[in-house]
């Protein structure tokens, strides 16, 4: 792997959090570099110097949210909670990770071997093969304000 250039003069955690919000709100392709500069407060040169590309920034954000395989508690970072697939409602960290995964699965994984491998590994670590699929599917519907348990009786008036 190549070196990372000059030392960073920014709060990487805050930058990744801001970039994550931009990516999950707008999607990967629709998030422009200018959107990321506005969200993170970085200059264009600093963003490229630190992360190499928009893809590099997305990967860094995804890795920051994935549970650390070396950490038996499954925490993504200090203070983050482990996944509890058995509990009903996902907590805020889980929702952010699921939204990042949805964007990655939909927009990057079909044509990006590295992203596909990263997600495949993360889902495999999750336990039962269908557990991750169920979580992602539930989140996809919840994001769209669709509750399959409560089908609406009537369509909105035209």
């Amino acid at each position: 792997m190549v070196g990372m250039g000059r030392p960073r003069s920014f709060d990487e955690h805050a930058v990744l959090a801001a970039a994550t919000t931009a990516f999950t709100d707008l999607g990967y392709e629709a998030t422009s570099v200018d959107d990321l500069l506005r969200a993170t407060g970085l200059h264009r040169g600093s963003l490229y110097q630190a992360f190499g590309s928009k893809r590099g920034l997305f990967l860094a954000a995804l890795r920051a949210h994935l549970p650390d395989p070396a950490d038996p508690s499954g925490s993504a970072r200090p203070g983050a909670t482990a996944h509890r697939p058995s509990s009903g409602a996902a907590d805020a960290d889980d929702v952010v990770l699921l939204d990042l995964l949805l964007v990655a699965v939909l927009e990057l994984a079909p044509r990006d071997d590295q992203v596909r491998a990263l997600i495949t590994r993360a889902l495999a670590d999750h336990g039962a093969p269908d557990a991750a699929a169920l979580l992602l599917g539930r989140r996809l519907l919840a994001r769209a304000h669709i509750d399959p348990a409560q089908p609406s009786r009537e369509d909105p008036a035209p």
């Binding site: 422009s32 570099v33 490229y48 190499g52 590309s53 928009k54 893809r55 590099g56």
Partner: peptide, 12 residues
């Protein structure tokens, strides 16, 4: 080995 990444960046 010296290429770190590429990005579509019309605003640049």
């Amino acid at each position: 080995a010296h290429v770190r990444g590429a990005t579509i960046d019309p605003d640049a």
